[in-house]
């Protein structure tokens, strides 16, 4: 817990320039571009001319909400990241745009996150966090039914998972750039498993308040937009992340993980058996670091293909549908 204050500072997950290798950074930019192209079409159909003021003010809201600190222990405090909250309230696709603008302005105006690293920062905080939040929320709501308790549980789970997954992704991207940064994967995931609790509590309380004070706001977006596309996207990203995480971690096992364990002081007997059970796995003939990159690239291409497929499917379906949202040509 002593490390917590330090890591609360990097809780915002913004990767600065200099940490990512150029191929990894470019891959992130490519992935972000593909998702954004798709998202822009979605929100245009969804919100029409209303989208610019609504999404602009929502992004400003995220900045403002992040300035409301949440006192944790001693002098430390955490704050909201907001991906899941915006996703639940305005719907996943508009939320992707909102968070993209937040991440972009954080990099440009405040140097919070790098300019070359902006691709991955968008993928982590604006795409992965938002879409996995939407997926978790949607699944749990369907599972638990409509009641206040189910709303609370679904919201909190969505917030926690979105934070943990985007943190894990950040760690994987760092590790793929430099195998020496392998420790970032468990460190990021572990620390954010705790930070995510704060996110879950704050998001839960915020959604409950909105559900009480202005239920119309919360539900006007529930049927809007292509949720199925968002869910498919999210599943694709999670698979890609899982593959990448496994390969990056295992590519330098047992050496890497043991060192991580040492550094973080939990290399006791507790972990030893696990380390022994896991096979010493590397891609044949390829050095660990490069293997990791290849798998990430593969995962990203997989995700990109999924995205294209979904986009194609959606467009195909829409051509049969009456075009109602064509009031604006932007």
């Amino acid at each position: 817990m002593i490390r917590l204050p330090i890591f609360l500072n990097v809780a915002a997950l913004h990767i600065p320039d200099g940490f990512l290798s150029v191929p990894v950074a470019l891959l992130g930019l490519l992935l972000a571009l593909i998702v954004l192209a798709y998202t822009l079409r979605q929100t245009r159909d969804l919100l029409g001319e209303r989208q610019i003021p609504l999404l602009g003010v929502m992004a400003a809201f995220v900045f403002a909400a992040q300035s409301i600190n949440f006192p944790v222990l001693g002098g430390t405090s955490g704050h909201l990241l907001g991906g899941a909250l915006v996703s639940i309230v305005v719907g996943p696709w508009p939320a992707v745009l909102v968070m993209t603008v937040v991440v972009g302005l954080q990099a440009l105006l405040f140097q919070d996150g790098g300019l070359l690293a902006i691709g991955w920062n968008i993928v982590n905080m604006a795409v992965l966090a938002v879409l996995t939040g939407a997926l978790t929320f949607g699944l749990l709501k369907r599972l638990l039914g409509s009641g206040r308790t189910s709303l609370i549980i679904a919201t909190m789970a969505a917030a926690w998972i979105s934070v943990v997954l985007s943190a894990t992704a950040t760690g994987v991207e760092l590790a793929a750039s430099d195998s020496g940064l392998l420790a970032a994967v468990p460190a990021m995931a572990g620390i954010h498993a705790i930070i995510g609790l704060g996110e879950a509590l704050i998001t839960g309380a915020a959604v409950i308040l909105i559900a009480r004070a202005r239920p119309a706001i919360l539900y006007q977006n529930q049927d809007a937009g292509d949720y199925r596309a968002a869910y498919i996207f999210a599943v694709g990203l999670i698979i890609a992340l899982a593959v990448a995480t496994f390969s990056v971690l295992s590519s330098s096992l047992p050496d890497g993980l043991e060192r991580v364990a040492l550094d973080y002081g939990f290399a006791d007997r507790a972990l030893d058996p696990i380390l022994r059970i896991m096979p010493d796995y590397t891609l044949p003939g390829i050095e660990g670091n490069i293997g990791g990159i290849i798998v990430i690239i593969g995962g990203a291409i997989l995700a990109a293909l999924l995205i294209l497929l979904v986009g194609w499917l959606v467009r195909h379906r829409q051509s049969y549908r009456a075009t109602s949202g064509e009031s604006s040509r932007i």
């Binding site: 400003a60 809201f61 309230v89 309380a205 959604v207 909105i210 004070a213």
Partner: peptide
């Protein structure tokens, strides 16, 4: 904190 965030969000919308 969550309530504050929620009411700020309503006002923003």
């Amino acid at each position: 904190t969550g309530w504050m965030v929620g009411s700020l969000m309503i006002r923003s919308m």
